[in-house]
């Protein structure tokens, strides 16, 4: 078994209204100095050792992310 993390982020050129709303709230809460926030998704997958990187890439690109609007990264981490 291995733990795999897939991070999905809106592409830089895609408007991220949720991130903007978070960024806009911070000064109101008294936190200064945060100039930009981008909001994405973080997936943690427990996978069998038989699942290779190519398969993980297919899962990320074909399902967890929409490549039209999102970038993704896959990495194996210590469980």
């Amino acid at each position: 078994m291995a733990r795999v993390v897939v991070d999905v982020m809106p592409k830089p050129e895609i408007l991220d209204p949720q991130g903007q709303a978070v960024a806009g709230a911070l000064p109101r809460l008294g936190f200064q100095g945060v100039t930009e926030v981008r909001q994405g998704k973080h997936f943690e997958l427990e996978v069998d050792d038989s699942v290779d990187d190519e398969t993980l890439a297919k899962i990320a690109e074909g399902f967890l992310a929409n490549p039209v609007i999102e970038d993704w990264t896959v990495r194996r981490v210590e469980a």
């Binding site: 809106p10 895609i14 408007l15 209204p17 949720q18 709303a21 039209v68 609007i69």
Partner: peptide, 9 residues
Amino acid sequence: GALVRNEKL
């Protein structure tokens, strides 16, 4: 293309 969250949320 794709549909995303409304600009003003």
